[in-house]
């Protein structure tokens, strides 16, 4: 198939960027989207031109490295699919494909399609963990957990941290990402002791990173390659409200 690509090119965070057009001919429909970009880059490289920088690693939809806007949708329009798992058979010969980086103030562009998503790491660092010193753990079966609860926690834990939720959100909010971690840990008994301090700290960090708010558009859950439910955001809101109402022993 033949395609026209409009790709965002930007030298670094300080430079202005612009779209460039590339004509791609004889693309095999069994290629993945990133392999199609590989073909382009291989050609550019052998011509001595700088290839299009894009983030990628595992190429099996789990590491969360890849992610670009493809025709206005993060990871493209195929539901529950990362960019690396999107295949060219989803496109038609003659298509125009616009490829842009994920856009958010908290995700500065580093080069071309590569953005800095370390803000998401800092949200986890703020409290997205269970404190369990190595070697201090009780026997794994000492705390039975209702299967349905464990399953719900797992659903939330499936987040790969790719940032598609932020990219798709009209407010560039990271609520789905943060809510997923709060729900994952907050549902499990192991996460209870830090449940409320966790939500306080993670939400504060989210604001500090200049992510937006949630208007319940619901874009994020559709864009999420793992289909994380919007319910995690409600769970986070609930935990935060409860946390505010509980107060702290250190007050007054």
């Amino acid at each position: 198939m033949n395609l026209t690509l409009n790709i965002w090119r930007q030298k670094d965070g300080r430079s202005a960027g612009q779209f460039e057009t590339y004509q791609m001919n004889d693309i095999n429909e069994h290629m993945s989207f990133l392999e199609m970009l590989d073909v382009l880059n291989d050609k550019l490289e052998s011509e001595g031109k700088e290839p299009v920088a894009f983030e990628h690693d595992c190429r099996e939809g789990i590491c969360g490295s890849c992610g670009v806007m493809i025709n206005g949708a993060p990871h493209g329009h195929l539901p529950r699919t990362t960019t690396c798992q999107l295949h060219m058979r989803e496109f038609k010969s003659g298509d125009n494909i616009t490829i842009e980086p994920f856009r958010a103030g908290a995700f500065p562009v580093l080069r071309d399609l590569v953005v800095d998503r370390s803000a998401l790491d800092r949200i986890v660092q703020a409290g997205g963990y269970v404190s369990a010193r190595t070697g201090s753990a009780p026997d794994a079966n000492s705390v039975p957990i209702e299967k349905d609860l464990a399953d719900r926690a797992f659903e939330a834990a499936a987040c790969i941290g790719c940032g598609a939720c932020v990219a798709s959100c009209p407010n560039a909010a990271s609520m789905l990402f943060t809510g997923a971690k709060i729900t994952h840990l907050g549902l499990l008994p192991q996460g209870q002791p830090e449940r409320y301090i966790r939500v306080d700290k993670m939400v504060a960090q989210m604001d500090k990173e200049d992510f937006g708010h949630c208007s319940n558009y619901g874009e994020c859950t559709v864009a999420c390659p793992k289909g994380i439910s919007l319910d995690v955001i409600a769970q986070m809101n609930r935990d935060l409200l409860v946390s505010q109402l509980r107060g702290r022993s250190t007050e007054g």
Binding site: V130, A132, P138, A140, V143, H184
Partner: peptide, 17 residues
């Protein structure tokens, strides 16, 4: 034990184990 304590959501049976 360590992973479970960290909140790793391993598969469970209906009895919770």
């Amino acid at each position: 034990d360590q992973a479970t304590a960290q909140g790793v959501p391993f598969a469970r049976e209906y009895g919770g184990l």
